[in-house]
Amino acid sequence: MNIFRLAGDMTHLMSILVLLLKIYATKSCSGISLKTQELYALVFLTRYLDLFTDFISVYNTVMKLVFIGSSLAIVWCMRMHRTVKRSYDGQLDTFRHYFLVAACFLSALIVHEKFTFQEIFWAFSIYLEAVAILPQLVLLQRSGNVDNLTGQYVFFLGAYRALYILNWIYRYFTEQHFSRWIACISGLVQTALYADFFYYYFISWKNNSKLQLPA
């Protein structure tokens, strides 16, 4: 474990806590894409198949349970909770995310580390996470002004993978066997997708103005 990876995991946890805060404090999920939440639940469920077979550390197991539990709770809340689901922007959240799932699964069948059930689903989860934010970014562009908590949620979600890239660079130079090219390339694509959001987020922070994404 290095400082970049720990900071990355804490930033990821922060994004989830901010999202939970927004939903429970405001009893509203306006501006949040249910499709992105569903994709993230699928990412964690397919990435952590080794949850009960490989024990790495208490930290690793606890974080996996937190990520799986929180993502399922958010999807449940947005679909079933009486008050919250009324504020869901269903008519704006129309990204065809099933195509993303199909494309990532096909890619995982072609590019993976080993042709085993666990490795193919692991590669699938890595590719899916890279594009999972797309429905959310499209929804932000369509819904005009973005409330602070939603903006912070997306910012922390993008920042965590950028910290992971620093972690991979650090591990590349400090560990001899280190090679995570699937995760690295996918992580670069994932972080690049946030580039324009980071730009507008920085502008809104600098001008102390409301976050506005151009339509």
Partner: peptide, 10 residues
């Protein structure tokens, strides 16, 4: 190398 070493990240 065991999978535990290869996949130790979240």
């Amino acid at each position: 190398r065991s999978r535990i070493l290869e996949k130790d990240e979240l």
